[in-house]
Design a protein around this nucleic acid. Structure first.
Length: 576
DNA sequence: GCCGTTTTCGGCCCGACTGTTTTCAGTCG
């Protein structure tokens, strides 16, 4: 069983408990355990198999009771408690739970009093007007549930950050122009730069919140106002995305920004620290009794808690609190730190622009070198380069460099390749052709369905090729389109460490491959990464930001990222 | 159900909004 599956069972048990007890501490314990297991980098069932129940109990937040459930899941693939709860109430809990406004207690009543077990039976009952008859429910709740079901049927989940951040920034700018608004910020998971967003949170400071609220609920793409109070509004957009706005006084800006940035668990940990110091932390500030101790700035809040400032990308309860307490937070790679781009395609294959056009665009984006990495012949559909055309391209690069130099422009175009990894792990170009290149990237574009062992062995063979410098988009996943191929990344990382191979963090918003967790593993193993745009168009250098964000989420420092180094140092590293 | 250099018992994060209430429960983040 995967950690996600175990987490789901634990969370469902927690929800069932909530049906009877409300959000009791027992229910919370299951909820919390689900969060912990879901966020663990290593397999909980493997941990149990190796270390027994004791190893599981050693995890903070998991005690004897929940460890027993985990033990059952690891050995039988099922938990008696969970099975009994499901038997007593055979409902599609996760589907019903995803309806806006429907929580455990209402779900329980709908089942007991109307026999509602699924989205279909919920919709039927609502349409027949049977829900409004229940005490505590009314016509409005019934309509809201109906809208909720309708929304789920249109089926949208989380949106790639690259799709929503530009929109969020435009709203941020517009909000800043609303009368009375003195500060605006994007908060939530978008500020933490999670690779996808389910909603977007905005925070504003305004003397009079009404104008900001009015603006927010009447933006052109709002299709539904879910809530609108004095200080908080929530809307649904045509795209399916939800957006929240919260307005706070200036004195609370830092505390509120911290609160609305999350993650939820990070906030809970901070409040725990506050509590231990006899303080109370909420979105309005940090208080000792009635007296405000901090709250105007985020830095001030952290400082008053005895912590250095923690960057939003780290606020995921991935060890940032202990690291902060011990003053060993990483000095993260910065958004302006990249000086080169090691994966760029041109019109020689499937790119839209010429080598020189891409070089000029990269320079305009603040870079001082690029590596031209067109596809190779195996990708015939894209006009992949064979050895002969690659040599011709090399001549064009020499000429382009000469022309830049003649104009006194300090910019370097390097020769490279996105060389295809064939089914058996051999490379698509001859050793002779590869040895003429400055940087050799290798990548998988076929046979995604190989068994795990075979896929891993194939990629290992490719990166063991002495010419291979970088493994491009190592897992092949495309967000919301296809999962990663089945590959043992721990093994790949171990071999990369041994061979000095660099692993790429492809910055393209639908790839973000490596993801933050894998980058974190690379950091742990001492494997270097490159953050590349995978640009196919002049406009694509802007996506580097998303790759940097994921690298920061993976605790990468500037010195861990080879294209944050000058070209000479980067090349010296690749050639050992 | 989990946890503990103040505790093995008695705590456990905190507040806004909605709808149905007539003082609050449920949900959400």
């Amino acid at each position: 069983m995967t950690n996600q599956e175990v987490a789901r069972v634990l969370a469902e048990i927690g929800e069932y408990i909530q049906m009877d007890e409300g959000l009791s501490f027992r229910a919370r314990a299951y909820d919390k355990a689900a969060e912990i297991v879901g966020g663990m980098p290593d397999s909980i069932t493997e941990l149990f198999k190796k270390g027994g129940e004791d190893a599981v109990i050693a995890i903070n937040g998991i005690g004897k009771g929940i460890a027993q459930t985990i033990a059952e899941l690891a050995t039988d693939g099922a938990s008696t408690m969970h099975e009994e709860l499901k038997r007593a109430m055979p409902i599609d809990l996760s589907a019903l739970r995803s309806v806006e406004g429907l929580g455990p207690q209402k779900i329980s009543r709908l089942y007991k009093e109307l026999g509602i077990t699924s989205l279909a039976t919920l919709e039927e009952a609502a349409k027949a007007g049977r829900i409004r008859a229940l005490s505590g429910f009314g016509e409005k709740s019934e309509q809201k549930l109906l809208r909720g079901v309708g929304f789920l049927k249109t089926g949208t989940g989380r949106f790639p950050l690259g799709d929503v951040l530009p929109w969020a920034r435009s709203v941020e700018k517009a909000l800043a122009g609303v009368r009375g608004v003195t500060r605006v910020a994007i908060a939530g998971s978008a500020r933490r730069r999670r690779e996808t967003a389910g909603d977007i949170d905005f925070l504003a400071v305004a003397k009079d919140s009404a104008a900001a609220m009015d603006f927010f609920v009447s933006m052109p793409d709002v299709t539904e106002v879910i809530a609108r109070g004095d200080t908080k509004a929530s809307v649904r957009l045509a795209s399916g995305l939800t957006a929240d706005l919260r307005v706070v006084p200036a004195a609370s800006y830092g505390a509120a920004l911290n609160y609305f940035t999350g993650s939820r668990d990070h906030n809970i940990a901070l409040r725990q620290i506050a509590q231990d110091k006899g303080l109370k932390l909420n979105e309005y500030g940090l208080f000792r009794g009635e007296k405000s101790v901090a709250g105007k700035t985020e830095e001030g809040v952290y400082a008053a808690l005895g912590l250095p400032y923690i960057e939003p990308e780290l606020r995921e309860m991935g060890g940032e609190i202990p690291a902060a307490l011990e003053n060993r937070l990483p000095d993260l790679v910065g958004y302006g730190d990249l000086v080169g781009d090691l994966q760029v395609q041109t019109s020689w294959t499937d790119g839209a622009h010429t080598i020189m056009e891409m070089a000029q665009a990269a320079r305009a984006a603040g870079l001082s070198y690029i590596v031209v990495t067109d596809h190779t012949k195996r990708l015939a559909m894209m006009g992949g380069l064979d050895e002969r055309r690659l040599a011709l391209q090399g001549k064009e690069i020499d000429e382009a460099n000469g022309s830049l130099k003649a104009q006194g422009i300090d910019f370097l175009i390097l020769k490279g390749s996105e060389c295809d990894i064939l089914k058996d792990g051999s490379l698509d170009l001859s050793d002779e052709a590869l040895s003429a290149l400055d940087v050799v990237g290798v990548s998988v574009h076929s046979y995604f369905d190989l068994p795990r062992d075979e896929q891993t062995a194939r990629i290992v063979r490719a990166i063991r090729n002495p010419h291979a410098d970088i493994l491009f988009h190592p897992t092949g996943r495309k967000i919301n389109r296809r999962p990663a191929y089945d590959v043992d990344m721990d093994e790949i990382i171990a071999v990369a460490k041994e061979t000095g191979t660099v692993l790429e963090a492809d910055a393209f918003p639908d790839r973000l491959d490596l993801n933050a967790e894998h980058i974190r593993k690379c950091m742990g193993a001492g494997v270097k990464i490159s953050i590349d745009s995978d640009a196919h168009d002049k406009a694509h250098f802007s996506v580097l930001e998303y790759g940097i964000a994921q690298a920061r989420r993976g605790w990468a420092r500037r010195k861990d990222v080879i294209n944050a180094w000058p070209a000479s140092e980067m090349l010296a590293m690749l050639k050992h």
